[in-house]
């Protein structure tokens, strides 16, 4: 077993992905407390509220974060919650803009009235702090070049005081910057959706209340899709993911057993 060709493991993983995907197997998805808190907070916002979504991820994290961002956008547009999209990541604007427009088209949301995408500005800390005073001082135009003063939904929005929730979808430490500079300085309520790689370091912020909710990778996306009653890629992929995890557990067990047998024989 110790000398097994690793390509056999790759083939097994590939099969564990392809077969459940072709068979469209549906496993039950239970909702974790951090996801439920996130959903409840958004659900409790009255119609006409404003959520700022920071799409702080590039193409490499699209698989985990796009499904949860899509689910949140659907919930917002369904509940007449206005959305301001921004990003602190240079390679995110094209993806984020396309995603918002796709969901807006599906839900009949109107650009400038129900949502606006402001795009990217360099200098994450300066952007976060600047918007606490005046959003227009950082974003004088939206992503399309329309002056911010000419956008109907931005008429009564000056700074974080008019933002009911800030959601950061990220694969990096930007959520910590939002907590340090927006939550701590301006008392802005923050929720986050992050990749599996950084989820462990986010839980302390949830426990202290610095985050009002937290979505964890593709599992968080599946849970959120389940809550809004709109199954999509998240729920489809978490089913496949479960089979791969099962395979990995089996391989870990086999690997450990073979290791101990090998060590016993050597002794």
């Amino acid at each position: 077993m110790a000398n097994i060709d690793r390509r056999i493991v790759f083939i097994l993983v590939a099969l564990a992905v392809i077969i459940p995907m072709l068979l469209s197997i549906n496993l039950p998805v239970s909702v974790s407390e951090p996801t439920q808190k996130f959903y409840d907070y958004v659900e409790d916002l009255p119609a006409g509220s404003t959520i700022m979504i920071a799409f702080d991820y590039g193409p490499s994290s699209l698989a985990e974060l796009n499904p949860m961002a899509k689910a949140l956008l659907k919930q917002c547009f369904d509940r007449d919650i206005r959305v301001i999209g921004i990003t602190l990541v240079v390679d995110a604007p094209t993806l984020a803009s396309a995603l918002i427009q796709e969901v807006a088209a599906e839900k009949g949301a109107v650009e400038g009235e129900d949502y606006v995408f402001l795009g990217f500005r360099p200098g994450a800390v300066q952007v976060i702090l600047g918007m606490g005073t005046d959003i227009a001082s950082v974003y004088d135009t939206d992503y399309n070049g329309t002056a911010i003063g000419e956008i109907p939904m931005m008429q009564n929005i000056t700074n974080y005081d008019q933002i009911d929730l800030l959601v950061d979808f990220t694969s990096s430490d930007t959520v910590e910057s939002w907590i340090v500079y927006a939550n701590d300085e301006y008392n802005q309520k923050i929720a986050a959706g992050v990749t599996g790689v950084i989820i462990a370091q986010m839980f302390p912020y949830l426990q202290t209340g610095q985050l009002v909710g937290l979505l964890s990778g593709i599992l968080g996306a599946a849970e959120y899709e389940n809550l809004i009653g709109a199954p999509a890629k998240g729920m489809q992929w978490i089913n496949v993911e479960s089979f791969v995890h099962l395979l990995i557990v089996v391989l870990v067990v086999i690997g450990n057993i073979s290791y101990f047998i090998h060590r016993t024989r050597e002794e």
Partner: peptide, 14 residues
Amino acid sequence: NTVMGRVALLIQRV
């Protein structure tokens, strides 16, 4: 969680 994230990338490409 890292494994979950990496597998999600594979699933998306497949």
